[in-house]
Design a protein around this nucleic acid. Structure first.
Length: 219
DNA sequence: CCAAGGATGGGCT
DNA sequence: GCCCATCCTTGGC
């Protein structure tokens, strides 16, 4: 059983980290746990997005809109968006109030509620694939539009918890973000080295048929 | 094993 | 009207 003081200290530490620059916040989210809908996931892969601060890949790059508004608010809230006509993805808002940065949760390991997650995703065969990929992670946790803007560090239905076991810096790998058209030189995807639940990297390829691209996988 | 293509809807140039 | 921070199935090797 965890001592309450120690637990709240760790939560305050996480809260402070999220309120700071997006890259350390992203790394600090590795190993943290996200609980929702009867399922808990240990986060194994994330991506940092720097909002209006010169990051063309961010949904906030072109300024504030109704969709991205929550990213401009204080850290520790959920930015949930709908994509490809059927998938939900979730970010944790970071940085000071007024600045739009966020961390996309790309993959996790289901550490509680395995049967619930399996029931939600009958198409997925292996357990390591249940929350492998940003949309699958949300599907496993039952996250949808209703989670938009939720505060994640309190007693709400969607909760972020500090890592049960801290992830040492040497266990974290970095590389380019997935599916991002530009900014290939920006290594803002972070994952836990060798973790089987990390999604395989695929370089973004514009719709082309004639040009095969070599396979790449995680290190 | 891998690559290709379809499903499907909202956001914004 | 075009573009997706995607996933799943299929059909090839």
């Amino acid at each position: 059983m965890t001592c309450p003081d120690r637990r709240s200290a760790a939560l305050a530490e996480l809260s402070d980290l999220l309120a700071g620059p997006v890259v350390p916040a992203a790394r600090g989210l590795l190993g943290a746990r996200l609980s929702a809908g009867g399922v808990t996931v240990r986060i194994t892969e994330v991506e940092a997005y720097a909002g209006t601060a010169g990051d063309p890949a961010s949904h906030a790059h072109r300024g504030r809109t109704p969709r991205n508004a929550v990213m401009f608010g204080p850290a520790g809230h959920a930015y949930v968006y709908f994509t490809y006509g059927m998938h939900w993805c979730m970010n944790v808002v970071t940085g000071p109030d007024g600045e739009a940065s966020a961390v996309l949760l790309r993959a996790g390991e289901v550490v509680d509620g395995l049967d619930v997650a399996r029931a939600r995703r009958p198409a997925v065969r292996r357990d390591v694939d249940l929350a492998r990929g940003p949309a699958r992670l949300c599907a496993a946790l039952g996250i949808d539009r209703s989670v938009y803007g939720a505060h994640l560090l309190g007693d709400g239905p969607v909760r972020l918890l500090p890592p049960a076991v801290p992830v040492p810096a040497e266990a974290v790998a970095a590389g380019p973000r997935v599916g991002v058209t530009g900014a290939h030189d920006v290594p803002w995807r972070f994952w836990i080295t060798g973790d089987p639940t990390v999604s395989t990297y695929r370089r973004h390829v514009p719709r082309r048929r004639d040009q095969p691209v070599g396979k790449q996988s995680q290190a």
